[in-house]
Amino acid sequence: MKAIKLAASEGRAVHPAGEGALVVRGLTVSYGEAPAVFSADLTVPEGSMTAIVGPNGAGKSTLLKAALGVTPRLSGQAHFFGEPLGQVRRRVAYVPQRASVDWDFPTRVLDVVLMGLWRDLGLLRPVRARHRQAALDALARVGMADLSDRQIGQLSGGQQQRVFLARSLAQGADLYLLDEPFAGVDAATERAIIDVLKALRDEGRTVVAVHHDLSTVADYFDRVALMNVRVITEGPVADAFTREALQEAYGGRLATVQIDQLRLGAT
């Protein structure tokens, strides 16, 4: 409820923060002179599956990172389940871009997944059989159970992505924020990942993914946020994924022919 007061004090009319798994208001991030994300609003209802779509450099990843406090924000707020992130970290899992880490790091698949249990393990609590089992279960969900001892430098791109997803699954969170989970992965991995994400949604959990492939938006997601530095439109795919919104987000870069091939919402 604090969110309402904060937002109200800025003269903004907002939905109650308690309504969504993630509610972002007026988020602005700048790395240099031009803002990477400008005054972005986003409302992600619980139990939904949302794609954040937009051209390169639209600030999609930055929006996620800034909401999570991974990247500093100039202004704006993000509330998770109606609370600031610090109160509900256990309920939120972040899956960074696969390419953002050095896969030459000296560790095994299982160790990476165990990182997801940090909030349970803390500094010094020993890794017990049940922790190891939780990590192995998470790996099994993404079809990687037999690779738990593999050195991470030996994984393919698709396997790396599955390990990252398993690490977030091990957290047992209610909200999953994924940064380009399908970038550079093979078709089998894409299928496996989307199956896991849909299963999470069916369990009542919430999924938000930065997504690049316009042709799969309608198949994979039930909500979409189109952005280009600002959030242009957000809502159920049927309402928000329109020709006009796409043209606004992508400018002239998206040929009409391409748009015609998409399964769009009503226009």
Partner: peptide, 11 residues
């Protein structure tokens, strides 16, 4: 050291 962004998201 492995994944700073993720570490930050964990708190």
């Amino acid at each position: 050291t492995f994944d700073e962004g993720y570490a930050r998201s964990l708190g």
